[in-house]
Write a protein that binds this DNA or RNA. Structure first.
Lengths: 338, 338
DNA sequence: GGCGTGGGTGTAATCGATTCCACGCCCCGT
DNA sequence: ACGGGGCGTGGAATCGATTACACCCACGCC
């Protein structure tokens, strides 16, 4: 593969001049520029990004470590992150932590070794020493969706409290009184916050959230199934199951179906995180939709701000309730389509 | 960030010795090794992968350019690719082409500039000059799922012909005679091959595939919707719609539902590419399942073989039919669950 | 006419690693 | 006792870029 030296030789100039042409430095004669450009063309020369990065100490690359690529929410997040990054002249390397802290660490370490310019993380746990060190060492970093309390890193997330309140209002209006939740891991902020938001909303309606109605999930489908089976085995099963993410909702739907029960007639179901598939499930699932694309874009903008020396602020966008048919219907034609 | 020089200084040895310790070179005294290791520990030193890559001309990184990350099939493929690559000591950088040739080129160029060790591609089109040049220039490359004819690059793919034949047998047994297909872009191999396999299977049953029953889609949901509407508007609509990928099947399902029709009673639906969500749709969708994970792993192994100087062969695994309820039922309890 | 100015250019240092080569030393065989 | 063969080590070249610095030359001004 041709290097800058080959181009210099072919153009009859020094490597410095070639570099200047390539980097649009003003002090180059029209003649030299033309000769360099034809040499570049003739040799099919492309600058070696590795060498450039070593010299400039910039990779123009962002690292994105997400909890689970197979979760459509994170897939969409990853996509919007890459889009915005590309628009700003950065590439993205994605690391999939699979909800496993040690895998998360593996990716963080790998990305750091590659000297990425900044790191976008949706932490799987309460924060490994590695990540805390990186943050403290000044690696530009932004948390997205989930975050680690007590670390001085901007957070870009959706605030679901209002939407959860709307959901509880909806459920209450449908006559439901015994509401249960499948929670995410307590080590994640989204795991604990959603339970708290749910509890607070229930309180507004004079309802409580007994411990037996809080199932411990791990954001994966299998745990949704397991927890739901537990709920169904209770002497007094809940009337509604609210899953703290879309995969657990899917597991719940499975568990209900395996028992030969029907949603929403026998038990209602709602989920946090709306995904395109929820329109097509049987029945379509009522969900709380995050502005996922906007979240990803805002996170990239915040990170690039930090990288390029500007101040970066935390962002909280709001989620909204999308009513479908999985909790029952009060009005004949009530369902939303989005 | 500490460099190898800092470690050398702290350990009281030369950089050469530090490098030898780090690379497990035998000729290092136990004493020197110990001093280096404590210095590494004390400084929290991590080798700079950029510098290392420049020197060794290896990045231990694979590029993966896929057609559409939002398609669960490719998401799963990407995941399995990353897993296998990690097991073999490589990282993966994913580029999402979004079915757009120019975006595909952008990613290929970017990956090449980063001097990735090898490239895994599921081409969006018939092959840009850029990609052909790269292949000709000797960049280790493997095609996965889709490929470009006439290029000397190993292909790892699923052969769906037998499964398509099984599908047609299933449909025929259910009494369906007018079968239509939503094809993918003709520029992709999967786009044209699936139509041909379908046509051949129909022929075995004495059925033909008239042009009006071949809709031109682009592997995205919206095109599935559009084509299906066209089918439904025909004087004699088909009894079955076979979508060449899962997203177009989803669009088709939508189109049917919008008309107030029901699957499978009014029209049957089947899809190429099985995904977890098909179990949960209304009705569960009969699909042809590719061994996606195995495909991704085999592709990585083939690519790494090429990179490390071994011979790499093409691989064709076989897809299989998964019968659910979207085409109707002959036996009371016929549906598979997987 | 001399000198300052600034544009165009090349030389060389530099980034952080790897690795070839040479050197010193110890040990062993003869 | 001396030569040879490792072994352990450091010096320095190298990968492919960027960029500070010096230099040359033409031009303009006084």
């Amino acid at each position: 593969m041709a290097s800058i030296k080959d181009v210099a030789a072919a153009a009859g100039v020094s490597v410095a001049t070639v570099s200047r042409v390539l980097n649009a430095h003003p002090s180059v004669s029209a003649d030299a520029r033309a000769r360099v450009l034809t040499a570049v063309e003739a040799l099919g020369y492309r600058p070696n990004a590795v060498a450039r990065s070593l010299r400039t100490d910039q990779t123009h690359t962002l690292g994105l470590v997400i909890s689970d690529v197979l979760n459509p929410y994170f897939t969409e997040l990853a996509r919007s992150v890459e889009e915005e990054a590309r628009a700003l002249g950065y590439s993205v390397i994605i690391g999939n932590a699979d909800e496993r802290p040690e895998l998360q660490d593996h990716h963080v370490r790998n990305l750091l070794d590659r000297r990425i310019d900044g790191l976008l993380v949706s932490p799987t746990d309460g924060g490994s020493p590695l990540m805390l060190d990186a943050a403290r060492a000044g690696t530009p970093m932004v948390f997205v969706d989930r975050w680690i309390p007590g670390v001085d890193v901007p957070v870009v997330r959706a605030d679901g409290r209002a939407a959860v309140r709307d959901l509880v209002a909806h459920l209450y209006a449908l006559g439901h009184r015994r509401l249960a939740i499948i929670a995410g891991p307590a080590a994640t902020t989204t795991g604990s916050e959603r339970v708290e938001a749910f509890r607070a909303a229930l309180a507004e309606y004079g309802l409580s959230l007994p411990d037996v109605y809080i199932g411990q999930g791990d954001f994966q489908a299998e745990s949704g199934r397991r927890v739901t089976e537990g709920f169904l085995d209770l002497p007094q099963p809940p009337e509604v199951v609210f899953a703290a993410d879309n995969l657990m909702a899917l597991g719940a739907l499975d568990a209900v179906r395996v028992r030969g029960l029907r949603v929403p007639d026998d038990i209602a179901l709602a989920a946090f995180d709306d995904i395109p598939w929820f329109v097509h499930t049987d029945p379509p699932i009522t969900a709380i939709a995050q502005p996922t694309g906007e979240l990803g874009r805002a996170a990239v903008r915040a990170l690039v701000d930090r990288i390029e020396g500007r101040a970066a602020a935390s962002v909280a966008l709001s989620a909204r309730l999308v009513v479908r048919r999985s909790c029952g219907e009060h009005l004949p034609r009530n369902r939303s389509t989005s």
